[in-house]
């Protein structure tokens, strides 16, 4: 078996900003292999967001080691971390975080304007961004502004942006938090499809039914992992979607019958 893409050994995070130091993460060790699909779960204040920020190289651990694709991130400066995020990680946020008044295509191109793609021609960048929009099924919406897209579509644009630099790990922070249940299934379907193609995904969620689409669930409580187990009887988004559609059709039939 190849070496894990993420190797975390006993990392801690202590926030010293308040009067009392807050020990948000208290010794988490974790290996993530290529092709995994992990849900990080936990109540509010369990440390899952802090762990996610450290996984995303947005924040540094106070103690412990984190190797991303074999690179010790503790040895990198601010700019090197930015390059690492650009090249090895993709981000999907709860609030989508697309640039307003910027087309879907330009939003997807954004990561390629920084980092190693700097030298690529604008045609190459455009082509690559369109390809990623195709993967999430939004190639026909490339010229739309975010405010012309539904929540689910915006999140798919955000996923395409996360994919565009072919990251080692796609990190999603409550990607379905702002979406209704049907759109959530739609977005989870995109994640499952990407995972089937071999992309490693780590997501934070507090919705149990969303976590059931993943392959492995981690539960955090008070800054430590209290449960780490593979998912039994995993939900498949495609089947779920079919069931929802049938239910909708049935509802319409019922409504029609009342007339």
């Amino acid at each position: 078996m190849s070496s894990p893409v993420v190797q975390i050994k006993d990392i801690h995070k202590i926030y010293e900003s308040g009067e009392v130091p807050v020990h948000a993460v208290r010794g988490v060790s974790l290996d993530i292999h290529r092709g995994e699909f992990i849900a990080l779960m936990g109540a509010s204040g369990s440390g899952k967001s802090t762990l996610m920020n450290m996984l995303g190289c947005l924040d540094r651990q106070t103690k412990g080691t984190y190797l991303l694709d074999g690179i010790d991130i503790d040895k990198l400066d601010r700019n090197e971390l930015a390059d690492l995020r650009n090249q090895k990680l993709g981000f999907v946020f709860q609030g989508f975080n697309l640039l307003a008044r910027t087309t879907a295509l330009e939003n997807v191109e954004l990561p390629m304007l920084y980092g190693r793609h700097r030298k690529a021609s604008s045609e190459e960048i455009r082509e690559r961004a369109l390809h990623c929009l195709e993967i999430v099924g939004l190639a026909n919406r490339a010229d739309h502004m975010p405010n012309q897209l539904s929540g689910g579509q915006q999140q798919r644009v955000a996923i395409a942006r996360g994919l565009v630099n072919s990251p080692q790990v796609l990190l999603a922070d409550e990607p379905t938090g702002n979406l209704d249940s049907k759109t959530s299934v739609e977005v989870m379907g995109v994640f499952q499809k990407l995972n089937d193609q071999g992309i490693t995904i780590v997501m934070v969620t507090h919705e149990l039914d969303v976590a059931r689409y993943c392959k492995r669930n981690l539960i955090l409580r008070d800054g430590v992992v209290v449960r780490d187990a593979p998912v039994d009887g995993r939900s498949i988004a495609a089947e779920e979607m079919l069931r929802i559609k049938q239910a909708e059709t049935a509802a319409k039939l019922t409504t029609a019958a009342q007339h």
């Binding site: 995303g56 947005l58 601010r78 700019n79 930015a82 390059d83 995020r85 650009n86 090249q87 981000f91 975080n97 640039l99 307003a100 954004l110 990561p111 920084y114 980092g115 942006r161 630099n165």
Partner: peptide
């Protein structure tokens, strides 16, 4: 601020 946050998160250097 949010836009700046997005840009920094996806790999913009402070200089950019």
């Amino acid at each position: 601020t949010r836009e700046i946050g997005i840009r920094l998160a996806i790999g913009a250097h402070g200089r950019d």
